[in-house]
Simulated assay, not measured.
Amino acid sequence: MKTYGLIGFPLSHSFSKKYFTEKFLNEGIVDHQYELYSIEDIQSLPELLSAETTISGLNVTIPHKVGVLPFLNEIDEAAEKIGAVNCICVNRLEGEVHLKGFNTDAFGFEKSLSPLLQQQHTKALVFGDGGAAKAVKYVLEKLGIEYKVVVRKAAENAILYSEVTPDILANYKLLINTTPLGMSPNVDTFPEIDYSKIGDQHLAYDLVYNPLETAFLSKAAAQGAVTKNGLEMLHQQAEKAWAIWNT
Rank of each mutant, 00 (worst) to 15 (best):
T3G: 09
Y34V: 11
L217R: 01
A124C: 11
G224V: 14
L93M: 13
F107I: 12
A221W: 03
L45H: 03
S56G: 14
A79P: 08
L25H: 12
T179H: 02
H202P: 06
K142A: 09
V126K: 06
E40C: 04
W242K: 05
H121D: 13
S44H: 11
K142N: 13
Q236E: 15
L93Y: 04
P191S: 11
Y19R: 06
Y172Q: 04
I62G: 00
L160S: 11
I75E: 03
R152E: 03
L117V: 11
S50C: 11
Y4M: 05
I159Q: 05
I82M: 12
P191H: 09
T189W: 11
K228C: 14
E22G: 09
K2G: 00
R152A: 08
Y209P: 04
N171Q: 15
L116H: 13
L234D: 04
M183D: 01
C89D: 14
L36P: 03
E213G: 07
H202T: 02
G57V: 02
T214W: 00
D194C: 06
Y19D: 03
P211M: 10
M233Y: 00
S56I: 09
D167S: 02
A135Q: 08
N210L: 10
I244S: 06
K123G: 05
V150P: 02
V66P: 01
F9C: 14
V97C: 12
A154S: 13
H235Q: 13
E35S: 09
S162F: 09
F24N: 09
N26R: 15
F216Q: 05
K240T: 00
Y34Q: 05
F24M: 10
K123L: 12
K134I: 12
E52L: 03
M233Q: 06
A155F: 01
E232N: 14
Y4W: 05
R92N: 05
V60Q: 03
S162R: 11
E94F: 11
G130I: 06
F127Q: 04
N86L: 07
I39V: 12
F127E: 07
V164R: 07
V90T: 01
N210V: 13
P191D: 08
Y195M: 12
K173P: 01
D41W: 01
I88T: 06
L36H: 02
Q201M: 09
E192L: 10
E52W: 07
F216C: 02
K148F: 07
F9S: 15
V126N: 07
G128E: 07
S56A: 15
G57T: 07
F127S: 07
Y138A: 08
Y161D: 08
N210H: 13
R92Y: 10
A51H: 14
I82A: 08
W242I: 12
V30A: 13
T61R: 07
A78M: 05
H13R: 14
K2T: 03
L72H: 04
A215Y: 04
D200A: 15
E96S: 14
P185K: 13
L6H: 01
E213D: 13
I7K: 10
N186I: 04
Q237S: 04
C89R: 14
I29V: 15
E213A: 13
Q236A: 15
L160W: 00
T179L: 10
N246K: 12
V226Q: 15
R92W: 10
Y161V: 12
G101T: 06
S56R: 15
E156A: 15
K23E: 06
